[in-house]
Nucleic acid binder design. Structure first.
Length: 175
DNA sequence: TAAGTGATCTCT
DNA sequence: GAGATCACTTAA
């Protein structure tokens, strides 16, 4: 695999909504053993962007948990949801601008909790850079055909109010 | 449809 | 330290 195909900080440092859309079709790679790499194509992703986004964890301010969202782009933000499920996010935008993209689904499994279970991802990956040395990284995929991307409101964020919960910041790749 | 589950955060 | 709150899944 050529080095240039691994998504880096230049990719993740851009506008969060664009990154979320562009991640569709990209390949999430997880090395589970020295000889085994699980590869899945990303089919659904959600953007969480900025201080003002009431659906974002960062809206409440900078805390120990959300600190990584304020850090440099291209790092993993992992947290536990409902006491059961690990959620996998990739940090976007420049340092001091809190933003991330939640990876919600893939061609192999659908659902953010199922995705992390399949890939054996847990809090150990929090704050690590998305590079092969971390055993969890993303590679560029084949472009998605025109008209195969849909955008929808984000899931489970009704508490953010009508405006923020209805923004079309969830992108899905429909086959 | 509702229980399960535990880190995180807010309020004492 | 206690209580509320969750970017969800599963079994029924």
């Amino acid at each position: 695999m050529r080095e240039s195909q691994i998504l880096d900080a230049d990719f993740f440092g851009r506008d969060t909504v664009e990154v979320a859309r562009d991640l569709l079709g990209c390949v999430l790679c997880r090395r589970v053993t020295p000889r085994r790499v699980i590869r899945v194509r990303i089919t659904e992703a959600e953007a969480y962007d900025g201080f003002e986004d009431r659906a974002s964890h960062a809206h409440a301010g900078r805390t120990a948990r959300t600190e990584v969202m304020f850090g440099p782009p291209g790092r993993w933000y992992v947290y536990l949801c409902y006491g059961v499920h690990w959620m996998l996010n990739i940090v976007t935008r420049e340092s001091d601008y809190p933003a991330a993209v939640l990876l919600r689904g893939s061609d192999e499994v659908y659902g953010p909790g199922r995705l992390t279970r399949l890939l054996q991802v847990n809090l150990d990956f929090n704050r690590l850079p998305a590079i092969p040395a971390s055993n969890l990284w993303i590679e560029r995929g084949e472009p998605i055909p025109m008209g195969r991307i849909e955008c929808h409101p984000r899931i489970g964020v009704a508490y953010a109010g009508p405006y923020w919960s209805q923004l079309p910041w969830r992108f899905t790749w429909v086959k």
